[in-house]
Amino acid sequence: KKPMSASALFVQDHRPQFLIENPKTSLEDATLQIEELWKTLSEEEKLKYEEKATKDLERYNSQMKR
């Protein structure tokens, strides 16, 4: 599977709780709203997800070399 971006990892982490809190929201709308939240994060908060994305890219690259 392809590597995930930092923002995609953020959405993946936050979507389940968002949908619990907003059960009538469609998956598409939830994703859009969480992506807007991503844009408001500080660089420090984004760094955690950027590090995860880097590790996921390394995983992807090692799988492609096999």
Rank of each mutant, 00 (worst) to 15 (best):
T31F: 05
K1F: 02
T40I: 08
K2C: 11
Y49A: 02
M64D: 05
K48H: 03
M4T: 12
L9E: 12
N61Y: 06
R59H: 11
E35V: 02
R59D: 15
L32F: 14
S5D: 04
N61G: 07
S62P: 09
S62K: 14
A6V: 02
D56F: 06
K39N: 01
Q63Y: 11
K1M: 12
L32K: 13
S42E: 10
R66A: 15
S42W: 00
R59V: 13
K55N: 10
T40W: 06
S42N: 09
E58D: 12
A30G: 03
Y49G: 01
T31P: 02
L27D: 00
A8P: 03
R15A: 13
K2F: 06
K2G: 01
A8R: 10
Q63V: 10
K48W: 07
P16H: 00
Q12G: 02
K39L: 07
K52D: 04
P16W: 03
Y49S: 01
E58P: 06
D13Y: 03
S7P: 15
L9C: 07
R59I: 15
Q63A: 15
S42Y: 00
E44I: 04
M4N: 08
L41G: 05
E35F: 06
S7I: 15
M4A: 12
L32Y: 06
Y60N: 14
W38C: 15
K55E: 14
K55L: 12
D56S: 13
Y60C: 13
E43D: 14
T40K: 10
E58F: 05
K46Q: 10
N61H: 09
T40A: 05
F10H: 08
K65Q: 14
K2W: 00
Q63E: 13
D13G: 00
N61F: 02
T25M: 08
K2E: 03
Q63P: 06
N61R: 09
A6C: 05
A53S: 10
K39I: 02
A6D: 01
K1Y: 08
L41C: 07
L32C: 15
R15S: 03
K39Q: 14
L32T: 06
Q63W: 07
T40H: 11
T31M: 02
K48Q: 08
S7H: 09
M64A: 12
E35A: 07
E44H: 12
L27M: 11
S26L: 02
L27S: 12
L47W: 09
E43G: 11
T31Q: 04
Y49I: 00
R15N: 01
K55M: 12
L27F: 15
L9Q: 14
R59K: 08
S62N: 14
Q33R: 06
Q63C: 10
K2M: 05
L57R: 12
E51L: 12
N61E: 14
S26T: 12
A8I: 01
K52L: 08
L37H: 13
Y49E: 00
E44C: 08
Q12T: 02
